[in-house]
Design a protein around this nucleic acid. Structure first.
Length: 492
RNA sequence: CGGGGUGUGGCGCAGUUGGUUAGCGUACGCGUCUGGGGGGCGUGUGGUCGGCAGUUCGAGUCUGCUCACCCCGACCA
C-alpha cells in the first residue's frame, strides 16, 4: 500500500468506478473470492458496528428486543405465502445435501448422493416465514401481543450482478418482525419504524431521505404497504435505504397464527417487518465522499480525530508528551482519537491516508508550531486548515465535530433539493431523467404507466412522498387524471 | 440466459508480421539521506504468460476446445 492509493478515479469522470475504488482503497471492503460475496474489512466493519449500536438503542427505546432465528428455512415454509414465494423464489440458494465424500481419484470431494435431503432447505433471503412459523407457538391470546423482535443477521439473495455494499449475494442487516392484535397498532408500528430509519439516516449518517409509500409493483412481496426512505446519491440516482412493511394478516393466515381477542373470538395476528442493511454503508459513502476519498460524519467515524506529529528525532519525546495530554483530554470527552507517531510512514502519506479514510478532524502537531503554542487543525469536509491555540483546543474540536456533522447534512440536503424537479411533460422528462435527479410527476396510478416509464427511461416510481403538499393533476404519460405526484428516479 | 470484453510477478499494464535469457510502473525486502502533502538515491526478492490440446525448427504471440473474471441487459435491499 501507499502510492497505489494515489490515483483515485475522479468522481465526475466515472461515478461507478470512483465508488468501487473508494470502497477498496479506503479499506472498507473488497470483493471476496466467492461469487458475489463481499469481505468487510475491519475499518468498514467498525463503521457498521457504530451504526448497529445506534440503531439498536433506537429500537430498544420503542420496546423492541433482539432475538435470533435459524439461517435455514424448510422449502415448504417459503411457499405458504403465495406472493412472498413468488418474490423471492428466483434468488434463493438451496441446500440439497448434508454430506460430502472423497472422490474416486482421492484428490477432491464430491457431494454424496446418498446424503440428499428429504426436504430441501433455503438459505434465508428474509425471515418472515421461519419467524411466523415460530410465532405460531408463542401466540394464543391478545395478552401475548404485541411481540416485538429484531434480529441482526446475514441473508442471501442470489443476485445476478453485484456491487460492494449496494448489492451483494450475502449481506448483513437487521430485520424486525412484529405481531399485533389490531390492524391499527401494526400500521402505527410500520410508520414508527420508518420514522426511526429516517431519523437515524439524517441525524447520524447525515443522509437526508425522502419518506414515502411504495407503489403496488414495487411493494415487498407479501406486504399490503411498503414504506421507504429514499436517499439521493451524488450522481442523482436514488438509493432505497430502508423499508418498513405493513404485512396485514397475510403471514398470520399463512402460518395459522390465531389468538383469542378480548371478546374471546379467534383472530389472525397482524404483522409488520422492517429492515436496513449494509447497503446503508453504500449510502454513507456515496452521499458525502469526494475526490480525496471518504468523508465520514463524526457521529459514525471510528476515528474522529487523528493527531500527526512532525519533528526530528530528539523533538519526538516532547511532541509525544504534548500529544498525550491532548489525547487524554479528548478521550475524557468521549471523542475517539488516534495519535499516529509511527515513524515508518511520512507525514505526507499520513495526511493523504487519513483523508482517504474520512477521518473528520486532523491535528498536525509540529515542533515549530509548538513553540508558539499552536496546532494546525484540518476539517475533512471542507479541507480547510486553521492554526489554533493549543490552549482550549479540546473544546474547539468538540465544537468542530458538531459543526462538521451539521455541515455535511446541509450540503447533502442542498444538493438533493437542487436536484428535485416537478415535471409535467413526458418528452421533457425522458430527456432530463437520464442526467439523474428526483422527478415529482403526476401518476394515474396504473401499472401500465409505471411499466412504460421504466421501459422508456429505466427510471422507476420510488414512492409517493409524504413531505410535499399534494395537488390533483394530469398524468404526464397517459393524460388521465392523477391524485398526486410521485417521486420518479433512476435507482441503484 | 442473451450481447460485448479481458486473462502476462501482490496490484496496474507493455510485449510489433511467431525469433535469443519475457519487460515496465508500483508494491514488497535491505541500506542510506530524509521528514510541514502520498519522498530521493542505491540494491534486491518475486513469473509453470488462466488451463488443455494442436500447428511449427521455434508459441506470451497462430488454431481449436475449456475455465475464470469483468462490463451492458432481465432480477433486486
Amino acid at each position: 500500500m501507499a502510492k497505489e492509493l494515489k490515483n483515485l478515479t475522479k468522481r465526475s469522470e466515472d461515478y461507478s468506478k470512483w465508488y468501487n475504488e473508494l470502497v477498496v482503497k479506503a479499506d472498507l471492503a473488497e470483493q471476496a473470492d466467492v461469487r458475489g460475496c463481499m469481505v468487510i474489512k475491519p475499518y468498514g466493519y467498525a463503521i457498521w458496528e457504530k451504526m448497529q449500536r445506534q440503531l439498536d438503542d433506537m429500537f430498544k427505546e420503542t420496546g423492541v428486543q433482539n432475538a435470533y432465528f435459524p439461517l435455514l428455512i424448510p422449502k415448504s415454509f417459503l411457499s405458504k405465502e403465495a406472493e412472498h414465494v413468488e418474490g423471492f423464489a428466483k434468488e434463493c440458494a438451496v441446500v440439497t445435501h448434508y454430506r460430502l465424500k472423497t472422490n474416486e481419484t482421492h484428490d477432491g470431494v464430491v457431494v454424496d448422493p446418498s446424503a440428499k435431503l428429504e426436504e430441501e432447505l433455503i438459505i434465508r433471503p428474509t425471515s418472515e416465514t421461519i419467524i411466523w412459523n415460530t410465532y405460531k407457538n408463542w401466540i394464543n391470546s391478545y395478552r401475548d401481543l404485541p411481540i416485538l423482535c429484531n434480529q441482526w443477521c446475514n441473508v442471501m439473495r442470489w443476485e445476478m450482478r453485484t456491487r460492494l455494499f449496494l448489492r451483494t449475494s450475502e449481506f448483513l442487516w437487521q430485520e424486525g418482525h412484529t405481531a399485533h392484535a389490531t390492524r391499527e397498532e401494526a400500521e402505527e408500528r410500520t410508520k414508527q419504524m420508518i420514522n426511526i430509519y429516517a431519523k437515524f439516516a439524517e441525524e447520524y449518517m447525515a443522509v437526508p431521505v425522502i419518506q414515502g409509500v411504495k407503489s403496488e409493483t414495487e411493494r415487498f412481496a407479501g406486504a399490503l404497504d411498503t414504506y421507504t426512505i429514499e436517499a439521493m446519491m451524488q450522481d442523482g440516482k436514488a438509493l432505497q435505504s430502508g423499508t418498513s412493511h405493513f404485512l396485514g394478516q397475510n403471514f398470520g393466515k399463512a402460518f395459522d397464527v390465531q389468538f383469542l381477542n378480548k371478546e374471546n373470538k379467534p383472530e389472525y395476528a397482524w404483522a409488520t417487518s422492517w429492515g436496513v442493511s449494509t447497503r446503508l454503508m453504500g449510502a454513507l459513502i456515496m452521499t458525502h465522499s469526494d475526490d480525496n476519498g471518504l468523508v465520514l460524519p463524526p457521529k459514525l467515524a471510528p476515528i474522529q480525530v487523528v493527531i500527526i506529529p512532525i519533528g526530528k528525532g530528539d523533538q519526538m519525546q516532547m511532541l509525544d508528551e504534548k500529544a498525550d495530554a491532548i489525547v487524554n483530554n479528548l478521550k475524557a470527552m468521549g471523542i475517539s482519537v488516534k495519535y499516529d507517531n509511527a515513524d515508518n510512514k511520512r507525514p505526507g502519506f499520513k495526511f493523504a491516508d487519513y483523508e482517504l479514510r474520512g477521518v473528520p478532524v486532523r491535528l498536525v502537531l509540529g515542533a515549530r508550531d509548538l513553540e508558539q503554542g499552536i496546532v494546525e487543525v484540518m476539517r475533512r469536509d471542507t479541507l480547510e486548515k486553521e492554526s489554533v491555540s493549543i490552549e482550549g483546543i479540546e473544546a474547539y474540536i468538540k465544537n468542530l465535530l458538531d459543526e462538521i456533522q451539521a455541515n455535511i447534512l446541509k450540503k447533502a440536503k442542498d444538493f438533493r433539493d437542487s436536484h428535485i424537479y416537478e415535471c409535467d411533460n413526458y418528452e421533457e422528462f425522458k430527456e432530463r431523467v437520464k442526467d439523474g435527479g428526483f422527478f415529482l410527476c403526476h401518476w394515474d396510478g396504473t401499472e401500465e404507466t409505471e411499466a412504460k416509464i421504466k421501459e422508456d427511461t429505466q427510471a422507476t416510481i420510488r414512492c409517493v412522498p409524504f413531505m410535499f403538499e399534494q395537488t390533483e393533476g394530469v398524468d404526464m404519460v397517459s393524460g388521465k387524471p392523477s391524485k398526486c405526484r410521485v417521486l420518479i428516479a433512476r435507482a441503484y
